[in-house]
Amino acid sequence: MIEIIEGFPENVVGILAKGEVTRKDYLEVVIPAIEKSLKRNAKLRLYYELGSQFTGIDFGAEWEDFKLGIEHLSRWERMAVVTDVAWIRHLVGAFRFLMPGELRVFTAAQISEARKWIVAL
């Protein structure tokens, strides 16, 4: 399940993942939020928090995430991923070179730092 985190500036989409993240979550929540932000902003920042209740992501969600990233490749300015899930941290690190903008991975203990970084000029 994915929820939008409110309170960020309009050029930042905040996402909180809980439980199992599915393709439906991407189609109904993530993609509409990103498309809405891209209509108003030339560049986009993404704050993606995978909390303690996160249990995994299905292949359909992974595929939608990949397509979304490629489709808007030149418009990603900055992304913060907050997680203590080791395989997510390693996966993000391994594919960091594909991200044209800045990408940082934070631990759950660094949530405050991650939120400050994603909105910083």
Rank of each mutant, 00 (worst) to 15 (best):
M1V: 05
I2E: 02
E3M: 07
E3N: 12
I5A: 06
V12E: 00
V13R: 03
G14C: 02
G14A: 01
G14N: 05
I15T: 07
L16S: 06
A17N: 09
K18E: 12
K18N: 08
G19Y: 03
E20H: 11
V21F: 06
V21E: 05
R23N: 08
R23K: 15
R23A: 13
R23D: 07
D25N: 13
Y26E: 01
Y26G: 08
L27V: 10
E28N: 15
E28A: 13
E28I: 11
V29L: 00
V30A: 04
V30C: 04
I31N: 09
I31W: 08
A33H: 01
A33L: 07
E35A: 07
K36M: 04
S37D: 04
K39R: 14
K39F: 01
K39A: 07
R40T: 09
N41E: 05
N41R: 11
N41Q: 10
A42Y: 05
L46T: 10
L46R: 04
Y48G: 12
Y48K: 12
E49I: 03
S52H: 14
S52L: 02
Q53G: 02
Q53V: 00
F54V: 04
T55N: 07
T55W: 00
G56P: 03
G56K: 03
G56R: 03
F59A: 14
G60E: 02
A61S: 08
W63Y: 13
D65E: 09
F66Q: 14
F66P: 12
K67E: 04
G69H: 05
G69K: 10
E71C: 13
H72V: 01
H72P: 07
L73W: 11
S74A: 14
S74Y: 06
R75K: 14
R75H: 09
E77M: 04
A80N: 06
A80C: 09
V82F: 00
T83H: 02
T83Y: 01
D84S: 06
A86D: 15
W87D: 03
W87K: 11
I88F: 08
R89N: 03
R89H: 01
R89P: 00
L91G: 14
L91W: 13
V92Q: 11
A94W: 10
R96P: 11
F97T: 13
L98R: 09
P100M: 07
G101E: 10
G101I: 10
G101S: 09
E102H: 10
E102A: 10
L103R: 06
L103A: 08
R104T: 04
R104E: 07
V105G: 04
V105A: 01
F106S: 06
F106R: 06
A108T: 13
I111Q: 13
E113G: 02
A114I: 09
R115V: 05
R115L: 06
W117C: 04
W117K: 06
V119K: 03
A120T: 09
L121V: 09
L121K: 15
